[in-house]
Design a protein around this nucleic acid. Sequence first.
DNA 1: CTGCCCCTGTAA
DNA 2: TTACAGGGGCAG
Length: 268
Amino acid sequence: VPELPEVEAVCRRLHEWAAGRTIVAARFTRPQTTRPTSPRTFARRLAGRQIDRVHRRAKNVLLALTGDLTLRIHLRMTGNLWVDDPANRPSTARAWFTLDDGREIVFDDPRLLGRMEILDAGRASALDQELGLEPLSDAFTPAWLAERAQRSRKPAKVFLLDQSIVVGLGNIWAAEALFAARVAPAAPANSLKPRQIRHLHAAIQEILARAVKSAYEQYRAPGQTLESEGYGVAVYNREGLPCLRCRTAIARVAQAGRSTYFCPRCQR
DNA sequence: CTGCCCCTGTAA
DNA sequence: TTACAGGGGCAG
């Protein structure tokens, strides 16, 4: 479900739907959803707080609450968030926060991998520090990317997935960026030429900007599934199918325990 | 660095 | 029945 574009779309919609509302009560169905405290303690800390705004940092959904607290929600693989009438809550909902207007924020998470945590101001800024650069920020420049790549021997794909360097890229968009830039996923980051770095940088920004737009427009209604494969995927999940540039069969290899799709002819 | 784990769902 | 799934934390 969510890489940067989908998380961004969720945050914007949640902001539209819930900013200014107050959380009246919070319910959880599983103890592992809340970290590090129990659902009970967690719910007690949330009750009565107003949601000032909802924004994104890396793949985290951040709800800024009154009293200088931040609710951090990580959707992991299958999480989703929306605001709706309690009557429409799905059976896979793992948490819901009743709002002062009778609607509720629903945290849907079939695979139970998602996590949430309450941060005080200090921890919120510490988290911000630990995370890498936002790829759509002005600070993310070709020179900066080149400098970081220089210091890493990781394969390019693994380098792009590392959230302490650049945030927001996941398995789909990392593969897409490498394909667009014609960079081999196994090439060590420090072996990339300046020209390849420039292409990679441009590809990351273009691809993500376009995907954010599509994801936001697509995520209009509460409870909709987040589908990134629908918009502009050129290599991901296309093993054996012809490369869109040269017709060579797309290959799949495992890197860091995950599938990487690439064109063995145009990416090297 | 890779491998395993957290979980459930779906498809081959 | 097995493999795999858009994430990430941890062990070895």
